[in-house]
């Protein structure tokens, strides 16, 4: 691994609902190296978006960081003031979402929205900002950018809007781009275009990426390393081929086995019984114990720690010998 750019250590985030605190993220510890692409995968509700919102300093009002540390280039984000954090957000760390419509201003031309980012963070003139925006639009594969500059979001297709979002996110040359399900709402052929673009941008600009997806195939295409989350915990982490070819956690293995595909025609699909417990229904012990086919007494009693299961392979499971 190269130098660590982002470091999350033992992060815990909890929601206050009524009078009680419900932890939604626990023991989150990982790093992202410079230029590296790290994936987070897991089913809905497992805490992927909360992880990214914690880094952005954009947690919802009812949630708070109750423990742990997030550092960018060694500097703590958790202890920095809201103002300092907003200086980082949009400049050093930027984000793209599943639905660009919610992030774009419907009343402002798309080109101008990109230029505004440059104006806000780069201290350039209006004219320079406009030119930077036009260049960036061309770089993300948009054509006829002079005309497109003045178009409004609703005039664009989903794929084009995601390109606009990427241009906005990259114009200030951030150190880290967080992409939260950026292709989930797109058709596969457009998804392929956007994944190619993100990979190219990662190579050409060296921007590191935290790539969140529920789709293991997409994760394989773009990530160097992957973290699997379940019910607020990281349960496995490894380089992408290692993780998908040799999963060690029963949840990861179960997910892979459950995937439909041409190779499983005529066979009954493997199923993981039950479903992800809601925030208010999580118990002690291993978060996966209730659905695990090989759970034993200790699994219900104690939360397992992340332990080494290979060269760069970490697993949170009592049943895996360290």
């Amino acid at each position: 691994m190269t130098n660590s750019l982002l470091e999350m250590r033992d992060l815990e985030v909890a929601f206050t609902l009524g009078k009680q605190d419900y932890p939604a993220l626990q023991q989150m510890t990982f790093q992202i190296g410079e230029k590296e692409t790290v994936g987070i995968v897991g089913e809905s509700g497992c805490g992927k978006s909360l992880t990214s919102l914690s880094i952005m300093g954009l947690l919802p009002g009812t949630a708070k960081i109750t423990k742990g540390e997030i550092r960018l280039d060694g500097k703590s984000l958790v202890t920095s003031s809201a103002q300092q954090w907003s200086g980082v957000r949009g400049k050093d760390i930027t984000m793209i979402f599943q639905d660009p419509m919610t992030a774009l201003n419907p009343l402002m031309p798309v080109g101008k929205q990109i230029a505004e980012m440059a104006l806000l963070h780069l201290g350039v003139s209006r004219k320079e900002a406009r030119q930077l925006a036009l260049d960036m639009m061309a770089k993300v594969g948009l054509s006829r950018v002079d005309r497109l500059y003045g178009d409004y979001p609703h005039q664009l297709s989903g794929g084009m809007m995601q390109r606009i979002m990427i241009a906005m996110a990259l114009i200030c040359q951030p150190k880290l781009l967080i992409a939260d399900e950026p292709t989930t709402a797109l058709d596969v052929t457009i998804q392929a275009q956007i994944l190619n673009l993100l990979r190219d941008m990662n190579h050409s600009t060296g921007t590191a990426m935290l790539f969140i997806s529920h789709d293991l195939g997409v994760i394989r295409e773009v990530c160097d390393r992957v973290i699997v989350m379940y019910a607020g915990y990281m349960v496995e982490e490894a380089p992408v081929e290692e993780l998908l070819d040799h999963p060690r956690h029963p949840y990861t293995a179960g997910l892979l086995q459950s995937l439909p595909g041409a190779d499983k025609r005529g066979r009954i699909l493997y199923t993981i019984p039950g479903r992800v417990p809601p925030l208010t229904g999580r118990r002690t012990g291993c978060p996966f114990a209730g659905r695990c086919p090989s759970a034993t007494a200790i699994c219900a009693a104690e939360v397992p720690q992340m332990k080494k299961a290979g060269e760069q392979h970490l697993v949170r499971c009592h049943l895996v010998a360290g």
Binding site: V188, A192, Q193, N196, D215, L216, G217, R220, E221, L244
Partner: peptide, 15 residues
């Protein structure tokens, strides 16, 4: 264009 969980593939991307 469909990503494959078993192997990273090069695909012919439709423009």
């Amino acid at each position: 264009a469909v990503p494959d969980v078993h192997k990273r593939k090069e695909h012919a991307v439709l423009q």
